[in-house]
Design a protein around this nucleic acid. Structure first.
Length: 180
DNA sequence: CGCTTTTGACCGGCGC
DNA sequence: GCGCCGGTCAAAAGCG
């Protein structure tokens, strides 16, 4: 299920101009995880992309708030980020190799939830992908943990001030990858 | 032949 | 104490 190279808009950030008419898209449509009720505010980014299909990540508003010292009850991965993306495809390759290890339908959503794990050895980052309960056209991707290795594909962004990925990973790496 | 995906079962935690 | 829900693991099948 890995994305073939020929088409890899994945690591290419999508310019604002690339963004759709954003007719129905609301940049302020943030999604909060129950994490917020815990200790850490889950950083959530909502991206819009009508039929970009590939990797509509990072092209709109990104709301990142996270506490470094946040501790979890059960999640020792330490970092959780959720993306709400409008896409018909739920497969969003972020440059890492993911292996699906489970699928489960949750009660809150009529759509099944997919569980992915980073395929790189030693990297125990997990990813959870599910479609929005209300709008099945939206996909909610939740990343959990921090990659302790470089992305298979080094990504270089332009001078864009705030990129979801770069920011997130960098932040994570510097904030709590002290273990490795 | 090796790797990844798929589906079901099992386990643990939480709530009532 | 029981039931429900979510999450993970494991074995088998399919595909490249």
């Amino acid at each position: 299920m890995d994305f073939p190279p020929p088409l890899n808009p994945n690591h290419i950030f999508i310019n604002s101009s690339f963004a759709p008419s954003s007719s129905e898209f609301e940049p302020s449509d943030y999604l909060l995880l129950d994490d917020a009720s815990d200790e850490a505010a889950a950083p959530v980014a909502v991206t819009g992309g009508s039929s970009i299909g590939a990797t509509p990540m990072m092209n709109t508003t990104t709301n990142m708030e996270c506490k470094d010292g946040a501790k979890r009850k059960k999640t020792d991965l330490g970092f959780r980020v959720a993306f709400k993306t409008k896409s018909d495809l739920e497969i969003m390759d972020d440059g890492f190799k993911w292996r699906k290890y489970g699928k489960k339908s949750v009660k809150n959503s009529p759509n099944p939830r997919n569980y992915y794990k980073c395929a790189s050895g030693g990297c125990n980052v997990k990813k959870r992908v599910e479609r929005d309960r209300e709008d099945s056209s939206y996909v909610i991707t939740t990343y959990e943990g921090v990659h302790n290795h470089e992305s298979p594909c080094v990504v270089y962004y332009d001078q864009v001030p705030l990129m979801v990925s770069s920011n997130a990973w960098t932040l994570q790496a510097s904030s709590q990858s002290s273990s490795s």
